[in-house]
């Protein structure tokens, strides 16, 4: 947080807006992927619990990718 010059944001211009909108796409992807995998696992293991695990896992994965791509690199 504190190690960035304030002017960095100005130089990036409108880019932070796009990153924000794009994050929505990643969260939805994580949701789809997580629920999809969770559904398959649920059918395989015969428990609905895997849906919840998949949902949370997918969202976590999304946040991780957003962090790797747009936070860590700057």
């Amino acid at each position: 947080m504190g190690d960035r010059e304030p002017q960095d944001d100005d130089q990036q211009g409108t880019r932070p807006h796009a990153v924000g909108w794009n994050a929505l796409s990643y969260m939805l992807s994580g949701l789809l992927l997580g629920v999809g995998v969770g559904w398959l696992l649920s059918r395989w293991l015969g428990t609905d619990l895997m849906m919840l695990v998949g949902l949370l896992g997918g969202m976590s994965l999304s946040m991780y990718v957003i962090w790797v791509r747009y936070v860590r690199e700057h």
Binding site: L28, S29, L32, G58
Partner: peptide, 17 residues
Amino acid sequence: LIFFLELITYFVTRPVT
């Protein structure tokens, strides 16, 4: 996992949203 996530993002969620 990330590859599938990116695949869904590039080909589904980005255009759909």
